[in-house]
Write a protein that binds this DNA or RNA. Structure first.
Ligand SMILES: [Mn+2]
Ligand SMILES: [Mn+2]
Ligand SMILES: [Zn+2]
Ligand SMILES: [Zn+2]
Lengths: 150, 150
DNA sequence: AAACAAATGATAATAATTATTATTATATAA
DNA sequence: TTATATAATAATAATTATTATCATTTGTTT
């Protein structure tokens, strides 16, 4: 935890931004809920528990900044809100997601499965890939079981 | 064109919806601008040229309906708006996109490159894939040339 | 024609995000 | 240290996209 915070602090300093108490509180929430996919509002409410005086706009600004520095990835699963996802330590690319159309659960796929596809895009399409977003929509394990039973 | 409209008409009738003049005008705009990725507002303005009396809410309702029937796919490229993309004739899955982070251009990749990845997701993760969204972010051909020149 | 259901247009309401502005904290220079 | 400049913040207003409401229209079924 402290180690991750330290790395992020350095990434901020490298661009001459500082890790203010508000920014640190926000990062801590993101670290504590790393598996989740929280909206700005969600994060705001959680940060308030640590730092009750924080304003919503500051949370938005912090998330915006962390996005620019590629510390978090901003993603949209099709409901009206943006969600913020901490990038896995050392990961080159954003990870993939499995979204269940029955129960709404979101699972993470940390292995990068797109190496070959990326080569095709670069070679056949002449497009220089920097990053990607891949989401599968379907039925999760639990919901499959539930369907068989009923 | 008329052939595609006819097919869509049948898809609607199959679920006992009708192809009203407003819906038809909307579908015509989508067909005419098939390569583009229009927002609801964009579509509204274009439909108005054909059917000036149409209301914005009707456009939203129509797009919602077409999404449910999988005639269009709703997608979000990270700016605040939803965009609507006609599904290619006979396509099983939504196609892929290449978004240039320099100039903002969006290119379409119609070949489905995810067959193998999908197998891994189904076998190793036990997740039953119904559809997917894949977007690459990077530098398009034109912008690469521009960079070399300068 | 009467009755009913589906669809529409106008517009109000909602919700997410961004902009503004006065204030506060932090860093730098004299 | 004190003064001064800069960056960041909180509160809140404004904006924007989308959805909800409701009276009216259209089309269909008796
Ligand atoms: Mn994730
Ligand atoms: Mn497309
Ligand atoms: Zn599920
Ligand atoms: Zn480009």
């Amino acid at each position: 935890m402290e180690h991750r915070i330290d790395r992020i602090k350095k990434q901020l300093h490298a661009q001459s931004y500082k890790l203010t108490p508000q920014r640190e509180a926000t990062v801590r929430v993101l670290l504590e809920r790393e598996e989740d996919h929280l909206s700005a509002e969600d994060i705001y409410l959680l940060v308030k528990e640590k730092a009750p005086e924080i304003g919503l706009a500051t949370v938005y600004r912090t998330l915006e900044l962390l996005s620019e520095l590629k510390i978090v990835d901003k993603i949209n699963f099709g409901d009206g809100v943006s969600r913020y996802d901490l990038r896995k330590e050392g990961a080159e690319h954003f990870h993939h997601h499995l979204v269940c159309i029955e129960c709404g659960s979101v699972e993470e796929v940390v292995d990068d499965l797109l190496g070959d596809v990326e080569k095709i895009i670069e070679n056949d399409w002449g497009f220089q890939v920097k990053d990607h977003r891949l989401t599968f929509h379907g039925i999760c394990k639990q919901c499959q079981k539930a369907t068989v039973k009923s």
